[in-house]
Design a binder for these strands. Structure first.
Lengths: 297, 297
DNA sequence: CAGTTCGATAGGCATTGCCTATGATGAAAG
DNA sequence: CTTTCATCATAGGCAATGCCTATCGAACTG
């Protein structure tokens, strides 16, 4: 049984006339006659009582019409919903973001995203890299903003911007007198984030894999870390976008001698059908952050 | 878009596996692949995100699944309802009956109909012949029990039983002494029903087209007429099935010399698809009334 | 590296749906 | 009483559709 047959049924029932119903359906009258008869044979129920003059729905037909109407309506609904869904740049878009990026990046991109992709409902989801990748692979995220390297052949990514690292020092720290801080110097009393944060590994890598004081303390957030530094417990290395927050906390920032940094990427599944949305989101972010590495943001 | 396609969609969404979904649908895996792709092209929406290992419904798909399920369910409902409707001997059966027959025939056939056609819901509708024929032609009745002659090529009928007329006399009436009453004698002071009752015309015809006392009085029902006769206002002619009621009213009944009577028929539209039901109802009535003319009921 | 699994693709075949032309029937009109 | 008209049914031909088997290609497994 076909939705088309049901449409024919409804048309004949409504018009009580094969010719007019056929016109309404955009088919010929014989087509309608044949299809209605087939439907009657399929259901093994007489649907219309015909004479050369009149076509009247049987009571059986009237009992079926309600269901037929509902089925056709659901079919239309599918087409309508699909039409709304057609635009890959529309609808919910679940975007994972790592915690060392989210609080500083989101305020920057919120407005541009709204402007460039007004019907894309971006839902940020903050978690650490491994958790984000898990959710991404489980189809619980549409894309993620990460600062780590490539993650496997099942994922595709696009670099968005380079984010330099900065040395974060208490104002009274001896290094604060230098215009540029060497990574080795910073390493001596560096504080790092808890396990799982990619920034922890990156900071340790930049400073030669040596955990300092922070090795025993596990700051759960960059914000905590900044407060620790401001209070003079040590130094740290922060991503460039957190510069404003660090300065607000009364921390002295200095460029690193080796100009170390990380690259923020947007990642999505290779088979993701709405990759256009992921790319568009990436485009907006990249545009907003253009020239950031040069300090013009 | 076809209901079958929606079934395929639901199967793949449920199994998240083309091969198993194909088996569940009873088709080959390539068939499913092709049809799903066609559906995706029709809707212009990606429904599944495929890898060689996994098949995951997209969020778009999940929004459509509800509608798809509803449409398929309505389709199933149509088949189910049709299956119940298939039996022409089931369901509502609106049966017209003339007023001079209804009160006496219905009690006789009620039980046999229930027994022979347990799932046929017979709904009696009492009215005069012309009104019944109108309703019958307007598809507001499925059949009618009449005592008149053929009614046109658009209607078909089946005779059920012969109903003899009887002379109805007040006990003190001079004719009450005769074993048999001649129609001419009866005509002298005959009372007849109001216009529109077929029995009125039949009674007048039997008695030679002469309205007696009753010409000016318009008894609306046979019951009224019987009371008039019992009260001594005149004589009348009643159909055989009313004999019991007449005797209960204290009326003397006598056979007519010419053995006049009427034939009760069941009538339905020539194109009526449930003619089997009409014939079955007729059969039950004919069986119940078999031998009635000979007085064995 | 061979074997396995799974979805996609290709080619062939039967079915289906549609159209035009025509038939059949009953009703209205001349 | 015949003709004409309106209406639904039927027939034949054609294109589209759906399905199958066979095969491919990619990706995982031992």
């Amino acid at each position: 049984m076909n939705l088309r047959d049901l449409r024919y049924l409804l048309a004949v029932a409504e018009h009580e006339h094969f010719g007019r119903a056929a016109k309404a359906c955009g088919v010929s009258q014989p087509t309608l006659s044949v299809q209605i008869r087939k439907l009657e044979e399929l259901l093994d129920v007489a649907l219309f009582e015909r004479t050369s003059k009149t076509v009247v729905p049987t009571s059986a037909c009237e009992q079926l019409i309600g269901h037929a109407r509902a089925a056709v309506a659901e079919g239309e609904a599918i087409l309508a919903v699909a039409r709304n869904l057609r635009d890959p740049l529309a609808g919910r878009f679940r975007l994972g973001i790592i915690p060392t990026l989210a609080p500083y990046l989101l305020p920057l991109i919120f407005a541009p995203l709204r402007e460039a992709l007004p019907v894309l409902e971006v839902e940020p989801w903050e978690d650490q890299t491994t958790a984000l990748l898990e959710r991404l692979r489980a189809h619980e995220l549409d894309a993620a903003l990460l600062a780590s390297e490539e993650d496997g052949p099942d994922l595709v990514s696009r670099p968005l911007f380079a984010e330099p690292f900065l040395a974060a020092l208490p104002p009274e720290h001896p290094l604060a007198g230098h215009a540029v801080v060497s990574e080795a110097d910073l390493a001596r009393d560096i504080l790092v984030l808890a396990d799982g944060h990619c920034l922890r590994d990156q900071a340790l890598a930049v400073c030669g894999h040596r955990g300092g004081l922070g090795g025993t303390m596990r700051a759960a957030s960059l914000s905590t870390l900044l407060n620790m530094v401001a209070a003079g417990y040590g130094t740290t290395l922060i991503p460039g976008l957190a510069a404003g927050a660090a300065e607000d906390a009364g921390i002295v920032l200095r460029p690193l001698a080796a100009q170390a940094g990380r690259t923020v990427r947007i990642v999505w599944r290779a088979q993701f059908p709405r990759r256009a949305a992921a790319q568009a989101v990436g485009e907006v972010i990249a545009t907003r952050l253009r020239g950031f590495a040069e300090g013009t943001v």
